[in-house]
Simulated scan of single mutants.
Amino acid sequence: MATQAAARPDFGAVAAASELERVIGALLTIALVTAVALLIVCAITWAIAVSAGSWHTVARARAGVLVAIGGAALTGGALAWTNWLLDTGTSI
C-alpha cells in the first residue's frame, strides 16, 4: 500500500469522486464537531457535579466523556478505513 502525504482519502479511482469526497468530508466533519461538543458539555457537567457532590451525575458525565473520546477516535479511524477500502478497490 502506498502511503499518502496528506491525511485524506484518495478518490482518484472512484467514479463520481467529487461527490463522494464532499459527502464523506461532511460526515467526518459533523461527527468530529459532535464529539467535541459532547466532550465539552460532559466535561463541564462533570466539573459542576463534582463540586455539587452529585456522584450519580459524575458517573454519567464521566461515561459521556469516554463516549466522546471514543467517537472522536472512531471518526479518525473512519478516515483510515476509507483509505484502506479505496486502496483495496483499486487492486481488485
Rank of each mutant, 00 (worst) to 15 (best):
M1T: 12
A2C: 10
A2W: 13
T3M: 15
Q4N: 15
Q4S: 14
A5Q: 10
A6T: 11
A6Q: 11
R8K: 13
R8M: 11
R8G: 03
P9W: 00
D10L: 01
F11G: 06
F11I: 07
G12E: 04
G12W: 00
A13L: 03
A13M: 03
A16Q: 13
A17P: 05
A17C: 09
A17H: 06
L20W: 05
L20R: 05
L20F: 06
L20N: 11
E21H: 02
A26F: 10
A26Y: 10
L27N: 02
L28M: 06
T29W: 07
A31D: 12
L32V: 05
A35V: 00
A35L: 06
V36S: 02
A37Q: 05
A37H: 01
L38Q: 12
L38M: 14
I40E: 00
C42L: 02
C42H: 02
C42S: 15
T45I: 04
T45K: 04
T45H: 04
T45A: 12
T45E: 02
W46T: 08
A47W: 04
A47R: 06
A47D: 01
I48R: 09
I48P: 00
A49P: 00
V50S: 03
V50F: 09
S51R: 14
S51T: 07
S51V: 11
A52K: 01
A52Q: 09
S54M: 10
W55R: 04
W55V: 00
H56G: 03
T57K: 13
T57D: 07
T57A: 13
T57N: 10
V58G: 05
A59M: 04
A59C: 08
R60A: 08
A61E: 00
R62A: 14
A63F: 00
A63T: 04
A63P: 01
V65W: 00
L66Y: 03
L66A: 11
L66R: 07
V67M: 11
A68Q: 04
I69R: 02
G70F: 10
G70T: 08
G70R: 03
G71K: 07
G71N: 13
A72R: 02
A73K: 04
A73Y: 05
A73E: 11
A73Q: 07
L74H: 08
L74Q: 14
T75Q: 12
G76S: 04
A78C: 12
A78T: 13
A78S: 10
A80I: 09
A80C: 05
W81P: 08
W81M: 15
T82F: 08
N83V: 08
N83W: 08
W84M: 06
W84C: 03
L86H: 01
L86K: 02
L86Q: 05
D87M: 07
D87A: 14
T88Q: 12
T88H: 07
G89M: 08
T90F: 07
S91V: 06
I92H: 15
